[in-house]
Design a protein around this nucleic acid. Structure first.
Lengths: 344, 344
DNA sequence: TAGGCCCTGGACAACGTTGTCAGGAGAAGC
DNA sequence: GCTTCTCCTGACAACGTTGTCCAGGGCCTA
């Protein structure tokens, strides 16, 4: 009475293999493999029998075994900061589309701006043998990736360059963009301009600050100590920083916001502020046109697309020296950046 | 002279294995495995020697082989519509966090609202032997997943229920939310209200329309044919639909927008419209508070979190009948929904 | 001192697939 | 009719890891 449950007939948690399909179709294992992979050299009749067995058993090829054998996973990894940030969604999507065009899947993970977590994630992806890796760095030392790169994992850094290793990087021209945005405010008559940016360990924050200083210097304007603030971009800190700049002994008449999160917080603050204050933000924001927010826009999707294309060129064997690409920014004047300086 | 290049010393594209590490450390293969996995039964001295060999060779465990042997991948898949849509970023991130807490990685893919692509993606993830699958359906027939589910792939549907199969679903109360939003407009004195929603094959679109009709019926208000529009949510179509409702023979005095994309387009249109029109949208939008847009908000992160938690409970062996969870919505009155009806 | 136990380490098979190679059947050419 | 060639098919090993099982040595106990 007791029925022996063979692996291939167990109802749950086990799957038919090519061997099972072969047995059912009455053919050899390799023939099934050929059918599954569309290889030539199988008669129509045999192929039909195999297909029927596949259907009947609900067979699906085990890609882990395939990867083990072939060495390539057709998968790329993307380590970014936070997928919930509207800047990264389009970037990730653009990478995915390029990957898809090359028949690859994308695994992405959020580092939450934590260097240790970035490292864990990147190495976990390497352990899964992704063919390539796109990283938006949280940390500033990427030597931990050296063995992986040597072992053949193509790696491209996006938005911020790699730290302490040579590698491809696709960046936005943060320096030029910030300089342009601040120059726009200066052209509007402002002479006291504040800068609120991200943590100083973040490359783009430093570059944008450099752009700000360059624009001020170009116009021979002094920069008071209190006009510059680099730090975490949580609303509380940004609010405080902005409020301080707006109410100090030398209150600024305009603000330059270093990224989209800062811009949003400043917009909220300025909505309650009695005195009109000009604002230019780095990064575009949805509905910014309706709110009349002037921004220096970068193209997140182009960033992702460019990086992914470079990655796949590497995977196709292109073996040049690591390069750095900088994408331009575009200034959208929508009102907030054209507010004239308030009279003292 | 000719030097034989052994696999393990080839400079590029090949990687050391446990065997190489074992040889270098002068121990057995299994001992390396023990060290790598932190298993007990290795003396401190041996462990140190192995660790040194691992460092020196830059060894990293090949997870494909591991998966092949163990059967579990510690990976879950998420099929969503479009990662660039601000609704899905937070959802995906929430799933990722739950996965991370369970030691799993997340692979996500965008279906671009194409049923065929949803199917391809979901099956590709199954071929990679994800432990579980979270799907935001684009199509309405998910029988193709039956063999996978039978084979043990835990599957949870989010935002929209599965079609033609029994499976867990975590949804937003679209019906209730829309009813509440439309009732809010009615309470404000509106009697002619338009509804603009997504494609009729999308479950949430239909549910929200049902909610709209229920609210109108509750108030014993008629619904004219021209007041309802279901279709693609590209700006052109939505603009046309809204303009038609606003200028027909019985022009509406208020609009209910079926999702965030529709809301944004309608807000843009109303900004240029001479007559004041009330608007309530389904889904919250960044900066909607500043623009004074009244919305029925759903919590995308909660949706993702709830679905992921259910998925992992299943993976831990919880084996109940498929369940359906509906999360509540919240009405945020911010101005646009409180515009009184224009006099005729 | 003998016997038994525990601790450490290694040999071996298995996971499911694909590449290599060889064999067999049938067709074509002499 | 026999050889040669082509086409189809299947046996087998290998990919890198982990689970099972066994051996050897050291230590404790009687």
């Amino acid at each position: 009475m007791a029925e022996t449950v063979r692996r291939s007939t167990s109802r749950y948690g086990s799957r038919p293999t090519m061997k099972d399909v072969a047995a059912r179709a009455g053919v050899g294992l390799k023939t099934v493999s050929r059918v599954v992979n569309g290889e030539a050299g199988v008669t129509q009749d045999t192929e039909r029998r195999v297909q029927e067995a596949i259907e009947a058993l609900g067979f699906r090829r085990n890609d882990s075994a395939r990867v083990l054998r072939k060495g390539r996973t057709a998968t790329v990894g993307l380590v970014l900061e936070d997928l919930a940030d509207p800047f990264y969604g389009p970037l990730s999507r653009a990478v995915e589309e390029v990957a898809r065009a090359h028949g690859a899947l994308l695994i992405n993970g959020s580092s939450a701006e934590d260097p240790e977590r970035e490292r864990e994630l990147a190495l976990a992806l390497c352990a899964r043998r992704v063919d390539g890796l796109i990283v938006i760095p949280a940390g500033s030392d990427h030597r931990y990736l050296e063995p992986e790169i040597r072992a053949g994992v193509a790696t491209v850094f996006v938005d911020r360059p790699a730290g302490r290793i040579e590698a491809d990087a696709v960046l936005t021209d943060s320096f030029g963009g910030a300089r342009q945005g601040v120059a726009h405010l200066i052209a509007g008559g402002h002479r006291r301009i504040g800068f609120i940016g991200d943590l100083p360990r973040i490359h783009t924050a430093v570059e944008r600050l450099r752009g700000y200083r360059a624009a001020m210097e170009d116009a021979e304007l002094p920069v008071a100590d209190g006009w510059v603030s680099l730090g975490p971009t949580d609303p509380e800190r940004v609010r405080e920083a902005a409020a301080a700049m707006l109410s100090g002994p030398e209150p600024v008449t305009a603000l330059f916001a270093g990224n989209n999160r800062v811009t949003v917080t400043v917009v909220r603050l300025l909505a309650e502020w009695e005195r009109p204050v000009a604002l230019v933000g780095f990064d575009d924001i949805e509905l910014a046109d309706l709110l009349g927010i002037t921004v220096v826009a970068q193209d997140a999707a182009a960033l992702g697309r460019t990086a992914a294309e470079r990655l796949f060129r590497r995977l196709e064997g292109f073996d040049d020296a690591p390069s750095r690409t900088e994408l331009p920014t575009v200034l959208h004047a929508r009102g907030s950046g054209e507010v004239p300086p308030a009279e003292d």
